[in-house]
Amino acid sequence: MSFQDILFYIFSAILVVSALGVITVRNPVNSALLLVLAFVTCAGLWLLLEAEFLAIALVLVYVGAVMVLFLFVVMMLDINLDRLREGFWKWFPFGAVVALIMVAEMSMVLMGKYFGLEEMPVPRSQDADYSNTRELGRLIYTEYVYAFELAAVLLLVAMVAAIALTLRHREDKKSPNPSKQVKVRKEDRLRIVTMPAEKRE
């Protein structure tokens, strides 16, 4: 067994255990942290597949940005665990039967002959000067440019929707309006009162 195989089994074992943990632990914060662990080990697996850029992007984007934000949200929300678990045991038998059938069906197809090493041989490893970052960049801006641009539009939709759903114009807010402040004239603020001079006693 080569060093790469050993690494693969270590990463896979951690990945499977942490993924199971995500859906079984009680505390949502632990669950989110386990998801971070799952992402990191997944990035390790991608490195073994020679997808270096994607592995680093996964750590930077998902672990570094998305999951940290997610953790903040989970910590700030007061999640009532008992209410979330309400009705779990009531529906458990039904859900378990459906899940078992699906797992059995999917493992019949996914395991064994259709996706074995004979059907899908190990890809040839690339030369040392091969850059998959360059390949990725080339593909995104040529062959996949249409889908890439559309994905950008999708993010724009998400932005518009998020602003539309959360922005509120409050009538009673006390924040200053800079453009009004700049336009202010002397007459608006200052009143010159002419008074007759009074004699000294």
Binding site: Y144, Y146, A147, L150, A151, V153, L154, V157, A158, V160, A161, A164, L165
Partner: peptide, 24 residues
């Protein structure tokens, strides 16, 4: 292409979710 089929579908669905929730 499966990718464009899927992205088109998501573009439609995401806009629809937001439209339904527009009346906050």
């Amino acid at each position: 292409h499966f990718l464009t089929l899927y992205i088109g579908l998501e573009l439609l669905s995401l806009s629809l979710y937001a439209l339904v929730a527009l009346r906050r």
